[in-house]
């Protein structure tokens, strides 16, 4: 395996690990607002590392340019979607847990 291949493997696998951590957080967190923070781990570090790994694998080609566009799309669009979710949830009266304890469900 070449050096670039090893680097790509490392980035891809690390990105996968952060995606799984984010998804575990999505299940473990006690209320909607805290779950949102877990999901943003997937959208930033998970997606970023996976796409970085693919760019290393592709080298300086048109495919990497498309991957950069994909990364920019995720980085510009995901905070907008997250903010929209948070705002509508707040307006609809979903209360954040003030001091969340383990295993407690949001009211």
């Amino acid at each position: 395996m070449t050096l670039a291949g090893i680097l790509a493997f490392g980035l891809l696998s690390l990105g996968g690990v952060f995606c799984v951590i984010g998804a575990v957080g999505l299940l473990r967190m006690p209320d909607f607002y805290t779950r949102m923070h877990a999901a943003s781990v997937i959208e930033t570090l998970g997606a970023g590392l996976v796409i970085a790994g693919l760019i290393v694998q592709a080298g300086f080609t048109l495919a990497s340019a498309k991957l950069v566009i994909l990364a920019l799309l995720i980085f510009f669009a995901s905070p907008t979607a997250t903010h929209a979710l948070a705002k509508v949830a707040h307006e609809s009266g979903v209360e954040p847990v003030a001091r969340a304890r383990e295993g407690e469900e949001a009211p």
Binding site: I21, G22, M29, H37, L45, E102
Partner: peptide, 20 residues
């Protein structure tokens, strides 16, 4: 990257030490 690392550590911590 720094804050994603912090949040990941919170998620994998068995005690889930969050203070929303």
């Amino acid at each position: 990257v720094k804050s994603a690392w912090d949040v990941s550590r919170l998620i994998v911590d068995p005690k889930l030490p969050i203070s929303p």
